[in-house]
Amino acid sequence: MEKLNTKALILASITVVIWGSTFTAISSGLHGGYSAGHLVLVRFIIASFLFGVTALLPGGKIHLPKKEDILKILLIGWIGISVYHISITFGQLTVSAGTTGMLIGSAPIFTTIIAVIVLKERLGTIGWIGLSLGFLGILMIALGTGSSSSGISKGVFLVLLAAVSTAIFFVFQKPLLKKYNPIELTAYLTWAGTLPFLIFMPGLLQDIQHASMEANLSVIYLGIFPTAIAYITWASALSLGNASTVSNMLYIEPVVSIIVSWIWLHELPAPISIVGGIVAISSVILVNIYGKRENILIKKKIQHL
């Protein structure tokens, strides 16, 4: 069991490092001539093509999904892939890569809220304090995105929508991994999520031709690594290890995002955003570690009553 968990954590670590570079690569593509719609479309055309090739290979591990799961796969793909990536990419038109990484790092806060509402999980005092601190941290991050005259950048709300959608994605993806292997499920969700992106097809070739070499390489990188490989390694980690333990690795993603953005684009979030990011991530740790311990004690007391 220990070996299995170790493998899961290694896969999760690889995923988080790759995903941490995603926001900088998106900024590079946007600054290099791609529109937000064309960037997300090309990225997922590449990923969908790679999964299509995998499906056609002899002995490939991708088979047709069961009929009763098709609607569920479509809905999860549209929420976790389509909504998430449209929100992230358009949000980054006005929000820096490092700040985006910190806001997405708050996703476990929304996962906890979904667990309370949908799964009827209980939260103790520590859990609610942690959530309150988390939203304070998000507010501080958001305040650092705008100028003194404009206030909070509009892109913040899109990035927060992405955080909510990825929280839903993580919660509802796990049960499907009991039926399908990670490559299969990632392929299904990628194909489902790519369909809405086809509305951005007009003018695509002109964008590709006028984009810089760095922008084109960034989009190719996005299609291969964060979109195809990282989603597989994440799904593999979830299938091998405890979901909450594996998800704890997401705490590292904002740090990776800020470092990569600083090295690649020479940009750093505003000081208040960095402080807010520390508060938000600390609150996530508080909720997921101490809040859960308190929750277990509450359940034991209830059982003894």
Rank of each mutant, 00 (worst) to 15 (best):
Y84S: 00
Y84K: 00
H85A: 05
H85L: 07
I86A: 09
I86Y: 10
I88Y: 06
I88A: 02
I88H: 04
I88W: 04
T89K: 11
G91P: 09
G91V: 04
G91L: 09
Q92F: 11
Q92E: 13
L93F: 02
V95Y: 12
V95S: 09
V95M: 12
S96F: 01
G101I: 01
M102A: 06
L103R: 05
G105N: 12
A107T: 14
T111V: 06
T111A: 12
T112Q: 13
I113S: 03
A115M: 09
V118S: 10
L119I: 01
K120P: 04
E121M: 03
E121N: 06
R122I: 00
G124F: 14
T125M: 12
T125C: 06
T125N: 08
G127F: 15
W128T: 00
W128R: 06
I129V: 15
S132P: 02
L133D: 11
G134K: 13
I138A: 10
L139R: 00
L139H: 05
M140R: 01
I141G: 11
G144N: 04
G144A: 08
G144Q: 08
T145I: 05
S149I: 00
S149D: 02
S149G: 08
S150D: 12
S150Q: 14
G151N: 08
S153R: 01
G155K: 04
G155H: 11
V156K: 11
F157C: 03
L158F: 15
L160Y: 15
L161C: 13
L161T: 15
A167F: 06
I168F: 14
F169E: 00
F170K: 07
V171A: 05
F172K: 14
K174S: 13
K174H: 13
P175K: 02
P175C: 09
L177K: 07
Y180H: 07
N181C: 04
P182M: 07
I183W: 01
I183F: 06
E184R: 00
E184Y: 04
E184F: 07
E184W: 03
L185P: 04
L185T: 09
A187C: 10
A187Y: 08
Y188P: 00
Y188T: 00
L189R: 09
T190R: 14
T190D: 15
W191I: 01
A192W: 08
A192S: 13
L195W: 08
F197N: 05
L198E: 03
L198G: 00
L198M: 03
L198S: 03
I199S: 04
F200G: 01
M201E: 06
M201P: 00
P202K: 01
G203R: 02
D207C: 05
Q209M: 10
Q209K: 15
Q209S: 13
A211N: 11
A211G: 09
S212C: 04
S212A: 04
A215K: 01
N216A: 06
N216S: 08
L217V: 05
L217W: 14
L217M: 14
L217E: 03
S218T: 03
V219H: 05
